[in-house]
């Protein structure tokens, strides 16, 4: 049973790792089959189910080495659990802009320090603005 536990936890964690690091848009967290939804309960159930199998297997003997395995599993599984739940509990807020509204004026520097100044309703090339959390 400990091997099943190791298999489940390592395969699901590997899936999370691929999801978080992949540059392919459809593999990112939130898009994978087991990671769908605001809080990916299926993913968490698989991970903690795998850990539980490891813990149960301790009842069948050789408890100490199995305990070491379970501890090794719990650390990354607890981290993933914290990550997905914390990220799903951002404070509620209201957008100040709806489709059909003018995009606000701005004067901001780009990555090279060049100033980009655009007035509200100024003619421009159509643009996609992506606001990311930064600090990468």
């Amino acid at each position: 049973m400990i091997w099943v536990s190791i298999l489940v936890v390592s395969v699901v964690l590997a899936g999370v790792g691929v999801s978080l690091t992949s540059e392919a848009p459809d593999v990112q967290l939130g898009a994978g089959l087991i990671i769908q939804g605001r809080v990916p309960w299926v993913l968490l159930a698989l991970l903690w189910g795998g850990v539980a199998l490891g813990a149960l297997s301790m009842l069948r003997g050789r408890a100490l080495p199995k305990l070491a395995v379970v501890v090794l599993e719990v650390v990354p599984v607890a981290f993933v659990t914290w990550y997905v739940i914390a990220g799903s509990a951002l404070p509620a807020h209201t957008l100040a802009i709806d489709p059909g509204d003018p995009f606000p004026a701005y004067a901001l520097e780009d990555q090279d320090g060049a100033l980009h100044r655009v007035a509200a309703l100024e003619k421009r090339a159509p643009a996609l603005y992506i606001f990311y959390r930064g600090h990468w």
């Binding site: 967290l29 939130g30 605001r38 997905v84 990220g87 799903s88 951002l90 404070p91 509620a92 807020h93 957008l95 802009i97 709806d98 489709p99 059909g100 509204d101 003018p102 995009f103 655009v118 007035a119 509200a120 309703l121 100024e122 003619k123 421009r124 090339a125 159509p126 643009a127 996609l128 603005y129 992506i130 606001f131 990311y132 959390r133 930064g134």
Partner: peptide
């Protein structure tokens, strides 16, 4: 920023908005 994407047209009008309150 809350993770957000906006598409703005040639007149400076917002035409599409994507936003989530989950950062993943």
């Amino acid at each position: 920023a809350y993770p957000t994407a906006m598409l703005v047209d040639a007149d400076g009008i917002v035409r599409w908005v994507f936003q989530s309150d989950a950062y993943q």
